[in-house]
Write a protein that binds this DNA or RNA. Sequence first.
DNA 1: AGGAATACCGTACGGCATACGGAGTTGTAC
DNA 2: GTACAACTCCGTATGCCGTACGGTATTCCT
Lengths: 263, 263
Amino acid sequence: MPTVLSGRGDPARTLALLWRPRAAPARGPRPALTVDRIVAAAIELADADGLPALTMRRVADRLGVGTMSLYTYLPGKPELVDLMLDTVYGETARPVQPAGPAGWRAALTQVAQENWALCQRHPWMLDVAVGRPLAGPNETAKFDYELRTVDGIGLTELEMDAAVRLVLGHVSAAARSAVEKAQLERLTGQTHAQWWREHAPLLAELVDPDQFPTATRVGEAVGAAFDAAFDPGYAWEFGLQRILDGLAALVQSRGYRPPVPIH
Amino acid sequence: MPTVLSGRGDPARTLALLWRPRAAPARGPRPALTVDRIVAAAIELADADGLPALTMRRVADRLGVGTMSLYTYLPGKPELVDLMLDTVYGETARPVQPAGPAGWRAALTQVAQENWALCQRHPWMLDVAVGRPLAGPNETAKFDYELRTVDGIGLTELEMDAAVRLVLGHVSAAARSAVEKAQLERLTGQTHAQWWREHAPLLAELVDPDQFPTATRVGEAVGAAFDAAFDPGYAWEFGLQRILDGLAALVQSRGYRPPVPIH
DNA sequence: AGGAATACCGTACGGCATACGGAGTTGTAC
DNA sequence: GTACAACTCCGTATGCCGTACGGTATTCCT
């Protein structure tokens, strides 16, 4: 399940691919493909089978061309992954900022849910390590929208950035465990509940309740509630509420009060 | 930078490796290696060069044996990674729970910092996807300790589990960006600050400030403060405080007050 | 008409995990 | 003392991977 480290190619070359549509060549045979078609095929493949299954050969096969033809359009695989990322960033909805008393909290909740859904649609996103910002057009637009949800509520620019990153980080962490759960269930043909029921007795035999009383007690409660060692959905909801509460405390300390709607 | 999906081998076999020391064979030549030595060599290798550089050949070379000899001790690479993980889990300190008014917040802060440090020492941990709990001895002890920091403060068992997972999730997300930064700087020989200074003009040219005013404003403020597109350390501290504040609100709503020390 | 630019891609290289089976080593049973 | 079972060690081979290289076909401009 390889995490690919993004941002490894020449940044100028990658940025050119991201921002400038390819001009038709002045001479030579007409290109049979476009960068967009390659990226679309790669996304389909990664969506279906995950990043490890994304190979240049398979992308080329799917497009009906030789493997090496892809290198006419792209410098290599890292750049392809960068383009895939910025493309799916274009999918997140950017509704008009809700006004009224709900304010930033509802808007930030929507950002979180939108990104959660994005991770479900494209689980391979979580395997891409973005060490430096891509700064592609869609990522930029997405980030601008997300920052707007916490604009004008009393935070500094640094805090706005950190607040959005905090929420997105939680989305990643929670989505990762949900996605890994789904992947394992597909890979092993065994649900977490089945796994739990099958291996709980062995675990009970190995783990001494006297030595680890808290883990035992909590493990049993969680197992009874979810039929598994943990539940990604519960962790996701719980965490998001705590984070929003924590941000609310900060916002409040800055003296911000949500605007009262005019009746 | 491959993320390896853990928990793929036969769980019973993996659990046996995790919990039961290997008995000396009754017959046959004396083993030249032990599982522990293999795991230690693998950890050294991954610490130094990252998970992608962790190959069975290199581990074997480092130990002075043929590649296939490793398979006498371990079923395969996934199990090796599982063993590596549980081994480094054994490193986290588990101080006696601090008493006094600081209470759970100080203890949970310590848990967070301890795990942060662990991720710095063994960055490859972040590339291992733990879809199901390993349930090795060290992981169990670690989790028991971590749960104890939030025991008896009014939370349900499900909430205790979710609270610890929330903090650990934030550690992972924050550490990931810090680690990726360090990896990219080593890989490209260019610090974030250098990268930022070199590419900021190009970015300024591509991104229209009128179209993305918030991203531009925040980006400039962050760039001025950190000489980079973001600062992992700031995000880490900011996020941890918000999460602890959010948990405090929950704890308070349950009527818990920290014990007052007796003078 | 010819040359330049470009697309396409077959082949090859070095790397990976690991399946298979043979050779060597040791303790035990007779 | 000898045979054999159990075990370690590991060379070889298979089928993947990304991509470097260089040849060939196609198209436009001069």
